[in-house]
């Protein structure tokens, strides 16, 4: 195994242990964080998909499409076929969304920039329109899901949040480790080159089209995971999963995180959840103003996202160390 691969896997392992420990701490102290964290992980997974696209120079403003598809596919599996096993549902949701993304991607992979973003919004709104009309599966009200089980085990009420959180934590770490490994692989690095100069990549014999299809499918799989997870956490899904405002939140999380760091995406999802929830609590009449203002401030002052902020801190520390050294040498 390559040294960097080992390091990434090790980091993943440490992260799982820490997250699991944190889960048990919160179980006994401030239980509500477990649910908020689970939901943030669901959002974070979708945003991780957007970050994958961002590395190839694209942003989808319509990830609600795959988020919603995953939620509905697994939700229908649970209500119609009686499958309540959470890991199975996650796989179903992931595959359904990945498949949809694979089918759709050739349509949109020719486009770039704002056109790409817009076509994805349009597609997600088409899905929204279809679901609202389908009264057989709840129409605009959506439907309620049974409580998930875990490999045949049904946790008691007191531990239901914890069980789902632990599963979410494992999924989050596995997904981010896998994407990190992909980013660092040859294929993943080519994507970064696409971001810089597409023409050059084509001349070097790689296909930008293929990179885009691959990324959109990966983003679809991640979106499906996130949608399934949030469907299970909320116990209810509706067509708003595919509404453009939902997709806007995913992009916000991705931009807040930046495309450099994988783990930052979950932190930024958590920040969004907390800001939204506390502004709704303390400013119930102006929470949208606060949320929008927060968004603008973040984009203005942290354009590269939290990930870049760490980089900057690191650079700053290095610069200070260097300055101190020089000072020492001067005196």
């Amino acid at each position: 195994m390559h040294a960097s691969t080992k390091r990434t896997c090790l980091a993943g392992l440490i992260a799982v242990i820490l997250l699991v420990l944190a889960g048990f701490v919160f179980q006994h102290w401030q239980t509500w964080i477990l649910f908020t964290a689970t939901k943030a992980i669901g959002y974070g997974l979708v945003a991780l998909g957007i970050i994958t696209l961002m590395r190839g120079g694209l942003v989808s403003f319509g990830q609600g499409l795959v988020y919603c598809t995953g939620a509905y596919a697994s939700g229908l599996m649970a209500t119609r076929l009686g499958v309540t096993d959470a890991p199975v549902l996650l796989v179903v949701g992931m595959l359904a969304s990945a498949l949809l993304a694979l089918i759709v991607s050739p349509l949109i992979a020719r486009y770039r920039g704002i056109f790409f973003a817009m076509l994805t919004v349009a597609l997600s709104m088409v899905l929204y329109g279809v679901l609202v009309k389908m009264n057989a599966i709840g129409g605009s009200d959506g439907f309620t899901l049974p409580e998930p089980t875990f490999l045949g085990w049904q946790p008691s009420v007191d531990y239901a949040d914890l069980a789902l959180y632990l599963l979410a934590a494992v999924v989050a770490v596995v997904a981010s480790t896998a994407t990190r490994l992909y980013y660092d692989s040859m294929a993943g690095l080519v994507a970064l080159a696409v971001r810089e100069n597409e023409l050059r990549v084509e001349y070097l014999g790689s296909s930008v089209f293929k990179v885009t299809v691959r990324h959109f499918t990966i983003a679809g799989a991640l979106g499906g995971l996130g949608g399934t997870l949030n469907g299970m956490a909320l116990g209810h899904i509706d067509p708003l999963f595919s509404f453009w405002t939902t997709s806007g939140e995913f992009v916000f999380i991705a931009v807040l995180a930046g495309y450099i760091s994988v783990s930052a995406v979950f932190l930024s999802a958590m920040i969004l959840e907390l800001v939204r929830s506390f502004s709704n609590l303390y400013f119930p009449e102006t929470w949208q103003l606060i949320l929008g203002g927060f968004l603008i401030v973040v984009i203005v002052f942290l354009p590269g996202g939290i990930g870049s902020f760490w980089e900057r801190v690191k650079e700053g520390r290095a610069a200070r160390a260097q300055a101190e050294q020089e000072e020492g040498a001067g005196s």
């Binding site: 942003v59 403003f61 704002i114 973003a117 405002t245 806007g248 992009v251 916000f252 931009v255 949208q288 103003l289 949320l291 929008g292 203002g293 968004l295 603008i296 984009i299």
Partner: peptide, 10 residues
């Protein structure tokens, strides 16, 4: 695009 989304909220 995201900025205009924020403006919408505001």
């Amino acid at each position: 695009l995201l900025v205009t989304y924020a403006v919408f909220l505001v």
